[in-house]
Amino acid sequence: MTDEAAQDGAGAEGSAATPAPEELFGAPLTRSGGQLVLHPSREQYPLLLRTLHEAGYLSIIDLTGVDYLTHPGRSGLPASVAPERFEVVVNLINHRERARLRLRLQIPADDARLASAIDLYPGTEAMERETFDMFGIEFDGHPDLTRILMPEDWPGHPLRKDYDPGRIPVQFKGAPANR
């Protein structure tokens, strides 16, 4: 556990120095604190999910996004993967082998979309909607991609780094008293 964490801290050069990049299920593999992380491309993603599903990863436990706008030079990515502004992070679980796997997908800012995982993993329905709501990443093939946490007419995506987290004046759609 210790060595891997240290490697993480060493930055992208550290992993570039490794001779043959590790691969698992056809995607570059890294380790972070003892956890396996795959870095598939967007195009690989749907097929990879199918492979994983067949390999026994039956549940997507978590799916979320990260906006790396103010922290672009992050470490932990293999040399073959170019960092983009957004990342979609998917956590899968294999109940039989008691194994976990994390996928980190790079999503460019000018084309923030990804294939939906809903056909294989219907449990991602709410998670993809949340990621859309909070980051504005669109999921192709999602049947009902609407906001889930914010009001429907809300402009902006609150977890983006260029969204002002601070206080906004309270607004209230003037409702006449109806008694």
């Binding site: 993480d8 436990i61 992050r74 470490s75 956590n91 976990r100 994390r102």
Partner: peptide
Amino acid sequence: PEGEAYVSIESPRGELGCY
């Protein structure tokens, strides 16, 4: 230190994870 991690525990309602 820089990095990312996901840890989960069993809460009364199920898997509670933090990333």
